[in-house]
Simulated scan of single mutants.
Amino acid sequence: MPRTQTVSPDATKGVGFGLAAYLMWGCFPLFFALFEGIPAYEVLIHRVLWSCVFLVGLITILRRWPPVAEALRRPRRLGRVLACAVLIGLNWGLYIYAVESRQVLQASLGYFLTPLINVTLGLLVLRERMLRLQGVAVALAGIAIVIQLVMLGEIPWISLALALSFGTYGLLRKQVPLDGLSGLFVETLLLMPLGLLALAWLSEAGLSHFLADQRSTLLLIASGVITALPLLAFAGAARRLRLATLGFLMYLNPTIQFMIALLVFNEPLTPTQLATFILIWFSLALYSWTAWQGRPQETKEA
């Protein structure tokens, strides 16, 4: 009998969740651009605090406290979670700074580079085997960075810092036995004492924008909700989709950011930058094709 590929309703729902997650992440520049006049570090402080508060309610509603309690009962195992918290905090802060300073093109480049950084870290740290075409893809991305360095005379440090921080976060996160929602809550919980101290210092110094006016206050509170919602959608997608499918959807995020940078923020794109983007897009296409070739086939007897 012939074998035909089928798409389950669960997989269709997973694609919907994945699209929702990456569309929300892709539109983040539009949200964080609203914080004009509020320093990136202050937005980061409130993003951590209000994410933690929002996640308390969410975890309670979803009855997801057991894995959180289990993690907190073993403080010796929280070292990696703390490292994840520091890395995600650094990533969030850099991203907010990139948006506020209108360097969204660099931010999008960073997230285009992230999957290739993941492959490289897997090779160097986990001793995973890199396929020949994956090695070519990583080499092409490296050439793109060298072109920017030589032709523009500067290192795209925001792109590299975002890719390295998020790539390393992903590497450590794989070693933490917590789901995405519970893990993010524990991470923000570990950062909360530092966030509260920073908020108290800002208030004492008269530098805080919180409660200064209704618009700023609501935006700062909303930053926590906006942080958690795409993660929920992503968790729904991750449970229903293959990793290769998620990998394809992931490119929606930096693509949307790239278009927002050009069409909304009118950021300049030099021919050299365009050439490096084309090289990285080609390397991603090569990497994705390699991943797709190695995917498991889902078939059903007709």
Rank of each mutant, 00 (worst) to 15 (best):
M1R: 10
D10Q: 04
A11T: 05
A11N: 13
T12R: 06
T12G: 14
T12N: 15
V15N: 06
G16V: 07
F17Y: 14
G18F: 00
Y22F: 13
G26F: 06
G26W: 04
C27T: 14
F31Q: 09
F31C: 07
G37Q: 11
I38W: 10
P39A: 02
E42N: 06
E42Q: 07
L49N: 02
W50F: 14
F54Q: 15
F54R: 09
R63T: 05
R64M: 15
W65M: 04
P67G: 01
V68I: 00
A69I: 10
E70L: 13
L72Y: 07
R77P: 09
G79P: 08
V81G: 02
L82V: 13
A83R: 10
C84N: 07
A85I: 01
V86S: 05
L87W: 00
I88T: 05
L90D: 10
N91H: 06
I96C: 00
Y97L: 12
V99L: 11
E100H: 11
E100W: 07
Q103M: 08
L105W: 03
L105T: 01
A107Y: 04
S108H: 07
L109Y: 02
G110H: 01
L113K: 00
L116I: 00
L116M: 04
N118A: 04
T120M: 05
L123C: 12
L124N: 09
L126A: 15
Q134L: 01
V138T: 02
A141V: 04
A141W: 01
I143S: 14
A144T: 10
V146I: 05
Q148Y: 08
M151V: 08
M151C: 05
M151F: 12
M151P: 15
G153V: 12
E154T: 13
E154H: 08
W157Y: 04
L160M: 15
A163E: 00
L164K: 10
S165T: 13
Y169F: 14
L171M: 04
K174Q: 13
G180Y: 03
L181E: 13
L184M: 08
L190D: 02
L190K: 02
L196A: 14
L197P: 03
L197Y: 12
L199P: 11
L202D: 10
L202F: 03
A205W: 14
G206H: 01
S208V: 11
F210Y: 10
Q214C: 11
Q214T: 13
T217R: 06
L219W: 02
L232S: 13
A233T: 07
F234K: 08
F234N: 10
A235D: 13
A237R: 04
A237L: 02
R239T: 09
R240I: 03
T245R: 09
G247S: 14
M250R: 06
Y251N: 11
L252F: 01
N253E: 10
P254W: 00
I256E: 04
Q257R: 12
F258T: 01
F258Q: 02
I260P: 00
A261P: 00
F265G: 01
N266C: 14
P271K: 12
P271T: 07
T272K: 08
L279W: 03
S283A: 08
L284D: 12
Y287K: 11
Y287D: 14
W292Y: 09
G294M: 09
E298D: 09
E298H: 13
T299E: 12
E301F: 11
A302V: 08
